[in-house]
Design a protein around this nucleic acid. Structure first.
Lengths: 338, 338
DNA sequence: TGATATTATGGGAGCGTTCCCATAACACGC
DNA sequence: GCGTGTTATGGGAACGCTCCCATAATATCA
C-alpha cells in the first residue's frame, strides 16, 4: 500500500499535521519545511487515502452516475459511451472520480440505498431517468445533490441538463414544412421519457406555428429502436405521409428500411428526418437529415453542474439547455417542392 | 446522512459491537437481540458507511474499471455499453460496486495513482488495454489484483478473460474456404490490439490448415472504424479478392459500402464476413455473416474472475477464453461454389 | 458441585485523514 | 523589554467502522 501521512512525517522529521497542511496547500508552513515534505512525499509516491479523507472531511470527490438499465439496453447507438466520456472528461479536469450504477430493476432498492447512504458519494448524475423512476423520489427526499440528464416531469425544482429537444424538433419539422411537405408524420419516442415527449411537443408546435392541422393518424409511438421505427413506419404508410420525422436516427433508419421494403424511395416518395446525428446517419442511404446533439458536452455540463451544486449547498436548482444543430443531408430532398 | 452504528446501538439498547455483529451476520448473537437490532436498523434505514468500513477492514468491495479513451472513442458499436452492463450486472450479484476511469492520455498519471494508491479499490478490470499501456506496467509492479479483458502480449503471467479470437477467425475463414472462395482477403484490426493480432492469426491458421498460400496483397490493416473498412476495401479491390473477412462488423460494413460504390455485388462478386455480430450486422444489406461474441458474458466473467482473485490473494493468474458462435447469413452466399 | 467450555456482550484500539486548539518562536511598535 | 500579533508546528479528537480482548452469563461434564 501507499505510505501514510505519519510515515511521510517521520521521514521528513515533522508532524502528521504539517504534512497534511503541505498536501492540502495550507498557508503557514515554512518554505523549507514545505519543500522537504514535498520531496519526501514525492519520493515515497504518497497518495492520500480517499476513504480516510472522505471519512474525516465528509466529502470524497466521487460522483455517482446512475443509468436505468432498460434505457441503456435500448440504445444501439454510441450515445452512452459518449455521454460517459463527457462526464469522466470533466471529472478529470475537476479532479473527481465516477462511480457507475446501471440500474437493474431487481437490484434497484439495493442500488438506491448504496447511492444514497453509503456516504461514499458527493452527488449523483441521473441519466435518462424514466418518468416514474423510484430513485428520483428517493433522491428528492434525501439531501444529496443531483443532476438529471434529460428534462423531467418532476419539474423545475430539480436541476437538469438537457438538449433543447422541443425547440430542435420544432425547427426540424418547420424545415420540412418550409420545403413544402404537407403530410408530415412523426414517429415519437416512448412517452415515459423526457426526450420522447419534448420532441413530440416540438412537432406539434411546428404544425401550430405554420397553421397546419394536427392529424393523429400521422403520429405513431416508437421505442427508440430500429425495429420499432420499422414497424411504426409500416403503420404510417397507409396514411400516405410525404415526410416523416423520427425522434431518433435509429428509428429514422428503421423507417427508411420500411419505406424501401414497401417499394418506395427516399426522399422522392417520402422524406425522412432523424434526431441525434449518430455516425450511422451520415452513412445511411440516402444520408440522413437530422439534428445534432452535443452529447459529449451534455455529459461534461452535467458533471460541472453537479460539482457546482455540491460546492454550493442550498443553491437554487440549475437548468441548462444546450442547443443543437440542424444537419441537412439528402434524405429530405434539397430543394423546395413548390 | 444515514444513521451510524452507535445510533442503532443506542436505540436497540446494545453496544456498537453487537450491532456490527448483526449487520455482518456473525454467529454468537442471541436470537432475540439479533431480531431487535435488525428491526431497529431496518426502521432507521441503516446503511453501513462504505468509506469507514473500507478504512477499518482494508476492503471496499469496489472494483475499478479502466478503459483507454482512444479505444472507447473508436467503437461506434454498442460493445462498451454491453460490456459495462455485464460487469455491473455481476457486481450487483456479488454485492460490489464499480468505479469508472476513461483514460485520457493527459490524465493518465493521475488516474494511475488514484487507481493504484487511493486505497479505495480492491482490484481493477482493464478493458482493451493497448499493447504498451503504461498502466499495465504500474499494475504489475503493484500488488493490486487485476484482470484484463482481451488477451495481451504481456503473456500468461497476468489474468485475462477473452473471446477465443484466434479460433473463431480460423473457423470463419475456414468456412469461407470450404465454400470455395479462393482469394480470401482480410481487413485486420490495429496490430497494437490483442483482438487485432489474434484475429489475423486465425486467418493465417485457416489458410495454413487448408494449404492455401498466404498472399500479402490480400491483407490490409484497418482500425475498427467504418471509414477504415471502406478505405481498406478500396485498397484491396485491385487485387481482386472473391471474399473478405473483416475483423469487425463495422469494418465489414464499410467494406460492403466500398464494394457497392465500385459497382460490385455482395456476395455474387465478393463475399463479406465480419466479427462481433452487432445489431447492425443483421440489418446490413445483405445481412452479414459474422462471429457472435458473448460481450455481456465477457464483462460478467471478468468481474467474477477479479472478485475471485481478490478473495484468494496469491492465487495463480486466471485465463478464461469464451467461445463464440458462427452466425451464417447471406453476405457470403449460402451454397457451395463448386 | 466445582472445574472447564461455550456463548453473548461490551469496550478499547486502530484504520488514515482532517480540524481545532495549544504552544512555541519570533517580529514589531512603543 | 514588555504586551500584542503573526507564523510555524505539534498533538488530541473525531469521522464510522471492525477486530481483538475482557468479562459475564450460561451450558457441559466428570
Amino acid at each position: 500500500m501507499s505510505p501514510t501521512l505519519v510515515e511521510i512525517a517521520k521521514q521528513a522529521g515533522v508532524s502528521r499535521s504539517t504534512v497534511s497542511r503541505v498536501i492540502n496547500n495550507h498557508p503557514n508552513v515554512d518554505q523549507a519545511t514545505r519543500a522537504r515534505v514535498r520531496l519526501v512525499a514525492e519520493s515515497l509516491n504518497y497518495q492520500p487515502n480517499i476513504a480516510a479523507r472522505g471519512l474525516a472531511v465528509g466529502r470524497t470527490r466521487i460522483l455517482g452516475l446512475a443509468i436505468p438499465m432498460v434505457v441503456s439496453t435500448l440504445f444501439s447507438d454510441p450515445y452512452f459511451p459518449i455521454l460517459i466520456q463527457g462526464i469522466t472528461s470533466m471529472c478529470n479536469v475537476m479532479d473527481h472520480s465516477v462511480m457507475l450504477w446501471l440500474a437493474e430493476p431487481e437490484y434497484e432498492r439495493r442500488m438506491i440505498r448504496q447511492i444514497l447512504q453509503g456516504g461514499l458519494i458527493d452527488g449523483v448524475i441521473l441519466a435518462s431517468a424514466l418518468m416514474n423512476d423510484p430513485i428520483l423520489e428517493a433522491l428528492e427526499k434525501r439531501a444529496l445533490p443531483f443532476v438529471l440528464i434529460g428534462r423531467h416531469i418532476v419539474g423545475e425544482s430539480v436541476s437538469y441538463v438537457d438538449v433543447d429537444n422541443r425547440h430542435s424538433s420544432q425547427e426540424m419539422v418547420g424545415y420540412l414544412l418550409r420545403l413544402g411537405y404537407e403530410r408530415v408524420a412523426t414517429i415519437t419516442g416512448p412517452k415515459n421519457m423526457g426526450a420522447g415527449v419534448d420532441r413530440f411537443d416540438g412537432y406539434v408546435s411546428a404544425l401550430l406555428e405554420r397553421r397546419v392541422p394536427f392529424n393523429a393518424d400521422l403520429v405513431v409511438e416508437g421505442d427508440f429502436t430500429e425495429e420499432g421505427g420499422y414497424r411504426a413506419m409500416q403503420r404510417l404508410l397507409p396514411f400516405e405521409p410525404d415526410a416523416v420525422f423520427g425522434a431518433s436516427d435509429v428509428m429514422a433508419v428503421g423507417a427508411m428500411r420500411a419505406i424501401h421494403d414497401a417499394g418506395l424511395r427516399v426522399p422522392e416518395d417520402i422524406a425522412v428526418a432523424g434526431f441525434d446525428d449518430i455516425p450511422l446517419a451520415s452513412r445511411a442511404n440516402p444520408p440522413l437529415t437530422t439534428v445534432r446533439q452535443p452529447i459529449h458536452r451534455l455529459g461534461a455540463t452535467a458533471a460541472e453542474t453537479l460539482i457546482d451544486l455540491i460546492e454550493h449547498p442550498g443553491a437554487q436548482a440549475r437548468h441548462v439547455l444546450l442547443s443543437t444543430e440542424l444537419i441537412i443531408r439528402s434524405s429530405c430532398g434539397s430543394t423546395l417542392r413548390r
